[in-house]
Nucleic acid binder design. Structure first.
Lengths: 365, 365
DNA sequence: AATTAGCACTCGTACGTATCGAGTGCTAAC
DNA sequence: GTTAGCACTCGATACGTACGAGTGCTAATT
């Protein structure tokens, strides 16, 4: 009943929640009268006013100008996200939500299944479509990164003579990921040489992860093979090394960038332009992709509010990211980018179900 | 001296050109006084006014409101592009342009060379970078499509047993384009079967273009192979057929979408949103990709002005496209999307040099 | 002591009016 | 055929007023 951590007593919390909830819905500063009616707590606007003044002093809300209602500050949002979303989770307004959830999930699953059928060699398409789906579903912008394959095990390497001076190099990894390349060599290589090389490579490298094939191992292999087979082999090995090192080239898909125009606070032409640029260019998004550990929430979902985001151009946004897992520790990142006043609850939920589904898909393949 | 086609005498043409030129530069309606000073034709503003009134009657320019200057209509732009740009080409203001051109081209060439070094298996990266370059260079939005490989000849097909129930399928085409896929089959196939199949496929299909491998040929092959080798083979063939038919999946890269914010007439939030959406989604851009023939200009460069563009959301834009050639008739399309008042001359020139460079790169590989 | 009613005050928004100036069309003079 | 001159139009800009939502504070109420 009395003061809790952060000095917010029960009632202040309720009022803060009310402010944020209605602000999320309307996007406009919310006044004391509104709350006095909206909530079940039977309090007059005057009382609310006093409390809100306190909340403002404590930095949870702010009034854009003297005679306007209050809007949440980043601190307010943070409190809301950290403290209040779990409470809601356990709470009881799920009667109506259950049904909605079921419908939505059903639809999502359906959409997903369509793309599962198009199998593994189209991971790219799958991810792209997931991004699209997310964006359409949430009305925010979405991004998704291809999972790292660094931890993937090598299944099979094959060199094939293609014609004069050209050799086809194919690398197959766990999860049926394929990388292929045509290598041009200065001299011809004999059929026999290729066969031997194939054998050597497969016996030496098979089952290793890309990580384990460090430079030392590979260049050791290169010189060894070169000793036996000469200069051309060295060229081939060099190409192989390059291929393996480039195999992990991370890709990022985005969708729904234009959703930001649905939120006036982001529609201003320079803000929008910068935002869309970073979404288009993709490079800037890498800082959102998570390394193993820093999953701040237990379930690998992170919420960045306003300035907290590592991406400069998203200072006026909030970003929610989740990781999905391929198999052993290979992670990709999904992200939702929207206005500060995004529906955090819905986004977190959506992200969770999508993540689960992706996990399932990849585990099967 | 007298009336030419379209009823525009020499002087009217000069005035029209002046209007358009200064409007391209400023983006604001241009008045009679401005032109009277700007041009070398020694005419008072009053005379210009009369001429401009005529031009308005004929539909080449329009006044946004009573007391404003004139801006070009689509018809005006069209005339400008069709008639006047060749003239300028031959004209003499190239003294200053030459140097600028040289610098620019040099820079472009340099940038290109960097990416040529990264060779053919990165066509995608190359094209993406060309798009970026174009966008940065012109300050408009750019798009570029991967060339069709329908006309590409098959060089090599290879099936490899990968493990139980899995077969690696690799297709190599002219220009070292590779498509690969892992095929899952219900039963194991023997090593011997695979070798025979490899032989059969290569001897039958080698040198054919993807186009020539029509369904009839392939399914004939399928049943023939199936007869000899049973059910599993049929599955493999089926996968092959799919692969070949999907091999030509066209990709489109875009860049600089946010450049449109540099032009107020496109910055309005709904216009911008629609435009950026179609650039982001890419699907809508396919109508810009050209079939062989309809190169309206001799050199395969097409200029769409305003409503002329086949893309709905670009009604307020102009679009200039060019085709580049891989080798035998395989074409890709480059496009620039900007405001009606785009610098047509510069864009056409830039497009031409880029196209030439692309042609060169691909001819070498 | 906490809550509430009441009220003066603030400030953003909408709207009407006045002013300004760029540019036109037209007429008459050259 | 060209140009000077002038009345006129109309968007843009600035300013003043009215309105209303919402506040903060004080005094009354429970």
């Amino acid at each position: 009943m009395a003061e809790q951590d952060d000095g917010l007593d029960e009632r202040k919390q309720q009022i803060l929640k009310a402010v944020i909830d209605t602000y999320l819905a309307t996007g406009e500063p919310v006044g004391s009268r509104t709350i006095s009616k909206y909530t079940d707590l039977k309090l007059s606007s005057a009382t609310i006013r006093n409390e809100m003044a306190d909340l403002e002093d404590m930095g949870y809300v702010i009034a854009p100008h003297t005679s306007a209602g209050r809007i949440p500050t980043d601190k307010g949002y943070r409190f809301y996200v950290d403290r209040m979303m779990q409470i809601m989770k356990e709470n009881s307004d799920q009667i109506e939500k259950k049904q909605k959830d079921l419908d939505k999930r059903e639809k999502e699953l359906d959409d997903m299944r369509k793309f599962i059928s198009s199998k593994v060699d189209k991971v790219d398409d799958l991810l792209e479509n997931v991004a699209r789906l997310l964006a359409k579903d949430t009305n925010y912008a979405s991004m998704i990164s291809t999972p790292s394959v660094k931890g993937n095990k090598l299944k099979f390497i094959q060199l094939t003579k293609l014609g004069s001076g050209k050799i086809l190099l194919v690398i197959v990894m766990d999860g049926n990921l394929i990388r292929s390349k045509v290598v041009e060599v200065s001299e011809d290589i004999t059929q026999e040489q290729i066969l031997k090389l194939n054998l050597l490579l497969n016996t030496t490298l098979n089952g290793l992860t890309l990580e384990q094939m460090n430079l030392a191992l590979l260049s050791g292999l290169e010189s060894k093979a070169g000793q036996e087979h000469g200069q051309i082999i060295r060229e081939v090995m060099q190409a192989l090394i390059e291929s393996i090192q480039n195999a992990d080239h991370l890709q990022i898909y985005t969708s729904g960038a234009t959703n930001i125009f649905k939120y006036p606070e982001l529609s201003d032409s320079t803000t929008a332009s910068e935002l869309i640029s970073t979404l288009e260019e993709k490079k800037g998004l890498t800082s959102l992709i998570k390394s193993e550990k820093d999953s701040s929430t237990e379930d690998g979902i992170t919420v960045y509010i306003g300035d907290e985001t590592p991406v400069e151009s998203m200072k006026d946004c909030s970003v929610v990211t989740a990781t999905y897992e391929l198999h052993d520790g290979m992670k990709g990142t999904i992200g939702i980018i929207g206005p500060r006043r995004m529906d955090y609850q819905k986004v977190v939920e959506t992200l969770k179900t999508i993540r689960t589904q992706l996990d399932d898909i990849f585990k099967k393949s």
